[in-house]
């Protein structure tokens, strides 16, 4: 095609909207009349943006590899932290929020991120202190009273207070046919206690105690509660009993009150009771208390 270069310039100007109205008319009519020109137009129309497409792609590629080669991921890390100070909404008018229903998931994600950055960004000291505090909590708090409870109740005391028949000589002497019934009831209550049927024994003891005060029954009721994992109840019963000056039951009541406090996690109260026992017990419970206090 003759004058191709001039025609190309004509086409370029047409595509760039640089032609006057008259020139555009001339251009359109040339396209209609000259097939070769029309073909040239269609080629150039693709080739020019094609050259830009190709060159742009090359430039982009060279810049991209420049960034990749120049900076490692580690180089980027401080800038991730810096980004926390940038408010996208304030600076760019862009607000990002989690979509409805996905909120929980996102929250968890951001928490994970936070703990990740805690670890990454030199707060190992804080993390270590937290770990120590958690460990301290487990060693010195609840588990300690649990440990002391086990030591006192199961090792030193060998489990629930064992029902001893010879104690019965202290029973209130009741006479008559009705007394036989009561004796049966009492025996049944102790039997249930001995068999580990604590709930049954608790009900029986309570029923008997509603008719008449009895230190021994009360002492066993307290122990039934303790053995039945109801330390709050056993504490109340043992306290009541101690207010009545239970005589020979006093030291063992104190001992089991102390254990009830341990079971209930009230380690300080327990300590007061055991210290009193260690000082004023005067029997085997004094020794037990002394032994136990060494473990506090």
């Amino acid at each position: 095609m003759e004058n191709e270069e001039n025609y190309i310039e004509f086409i370029e100007n047409y595509l760039a909207n640089k032609l006057s109205t008259d020139e555009v008319k001339e251009f359109e009519s040339l396209r209609q009349s000259d097939d070769q020109f029309n073909k040239l137009f269609l080629d150039v129309k693709t080739i020019l943006p094609g050259i830009r497409y190709s060159t742009r792609k090359e430039l982009k590629g060279s810049l991209k590899s420049l960034g990749f080669n120049q900076y490692s991921n580690q180089d980027l890390e401080p800038f991730l932290e810096l980004a926390d100070q940038v408010d996208l909404e304030e600076k760019y008018g862009v607000k990002i929020s989690p979509k409805e229903g996905k909120q929980i998931q996102l929250k968890q994600e951001s928490q994970n991120n936070r703990s990740f950055s805690l670890f990454t960004y030199k707060s190992m000291g804080i993390a270590a202190s937290i770990a120590l505090l958690i460990a301290a909590y487990f060693i010195f708090s609840t588990p300690n009273s649990e440990r002391l409870y086990n030591l006192a109740y199961n090792e030193i005391g060998q489990g629930p207070y064992t029902y001893i028949n010879s104690d019965d000589e202290n029973l209130t002497v009741v006479r008559g046919s009705e007394s036989e019934k009561v004796e049966d009831q009492i025996q049944k209550a102790y039997n249930a206690y001995s068999l580990g049927q604590y709930e049954t024994s608790i009900n029986s003891f309570r029923e008997l105690l509603s008719k008449a005060e009895d230190d021994k029954l009360k002492f066993y009721l307290g122990n039934a509660y303790l053995a039945n994992n109801q330390p709050e109840e056993s504490i109340n019963i043992f306290k009541e009993l101690l207010e009545n000056n239970p005589g020979e039951f006093e030291t063992r009541t104190k001992w089991y009150l102390g254990i009830s406090f341990l079971k209930n996690g009230e380690i300080d109260e327990a300590k007061v009771v055991f210290m009193d026992l260690a000082k004023n017990g005067g029997d085997s419970y004094q020794e037990k208390a002394e032994k136990l206090l060494k473990e506090f």
Partner: peptide, 20 residues
């Protein structure tokens, strides 16, 4: 290229953080 390298890390840090 100088401009590219000058702002590269700050910009990447920004979008990587905001669009994790």
């Amino acid at each position: 290229e100088e401009v590219y390298l000058q702002f590269h890390n700050e910009f990447l840090g920004l979008i990587l953080r905001k669009f994790n």
